[in-house]
């Protein structure tokens, strides 16, 4: 059976600062994804390998990593379509490393949470116990629908050159999520724009487009950030 070579990034925090690559021969199967290969390594070759994954079908957003230099969901990437003899698996950039290819994403979630990315209504009692339906028209839905598909895998945060250079920058995902609630006609949250009108806020996006290139769900954060910027410039 034809085999494919996996170069997997290995890192143990107790070993010091720098990780190293270890190679594994994995037999190729039809329809095999990169995540399947990593699970094969963990089951048969090296049980010390740490991988974070859950659903294996690009819904949960747990298995974000860099495969051959691009941020992808490992479960969403077929080995065949990479067309390479060697598959290099690295952890995502811009996150603190925990082990092997597992990263600490807490800062990514905190930045999103600080922007209050949830539906805010003035009438809290009504929001908790609604007495009627709050229906949207097709046009109102289309403004936000694309951005609701975000699964918070963090690939855009890893690809963004500005996050890499300026760690305080809010990142594509948080800004996109803020625009999703800003554009929602049911939302009544105030000061949403004031939260991003600072040096580390929306102005540091230079439209490098890497976030939209790597997004596995077709969310297009670059578009959302430019629309957010237009709203903030008005």
């Amino acid at each position: 059976m034809e085999a494919v070579r996996f170069r997997v990034h290995r890192f143990r925090p107790e070993d010091g600062h720098r990780g190293s690559f270890r190679e594994y021969q994995v037999p190729k199967k039809k329809g095999m994804t990169v995540l399947d290969g990593l699970i094969y390594i963990k089951e048969n070759l090296d049980p010390t390998l740490s991988v974070r994954y859950s659903c294996r079908m690009a819904i949960c957003g747990s298995c974000g990593m860099r495969v051959n230099g691009m941020e992808v969901l490992a479960c969403n990437t077929q080995i065949v379509e990479l067309e390479k003899k060697v598959i290099t698996v690295e952890p995502m950039k811009n996150y603190p490393l925990i082990k092997d290819i597992v990263v600490d994403m807490s800062e990514f979630f905190v930045k999103q949470k600080n922007l209050k990315t949830w539906l805010i209504r003035k009438d809290v009692v009504e929001q908790e116990n609604p007495t009627r339906q709050y229906a949207q028209t097709e046009e109102e839905l289309e403004k936000i629908l694309q951005f609701t598909y975000c699964i918070q895998c963090g690939l855009c945060y890893s690809a963004c050159p500005v996050v890499s250079n300026l760690p305080q920058f809010l990142g594509p995902q948080a800004l996109m999520k803020l625009y999703r609630y800003l554009a929602d006609n049911r939302d009544e949250g105030e000061d949403r724009l004031a939260a991003v009108d600072k040096f580390e806020g929306v102005w540091r996006c230079h439209f490098a487009g890497s976030c939209s290139t790597v997004c596995p769900k077709g969310v297009d954060p670059a578009l959302a950030i430019q629309l957010l910027r237009r709203a903030a410039l008005k």
């Binding site: 009108d197 600072k198 040096f199 806020g201 102005w203 903030a232 410039l233």
Partner: peptide, 8 residues
């Protein structure tokens, strides 16, 4: 100066 005005 607010960053918005710097950008403008």
């Amino acid at each position: 100066m607010r960053e918005r005005n710097v950008m403008l």
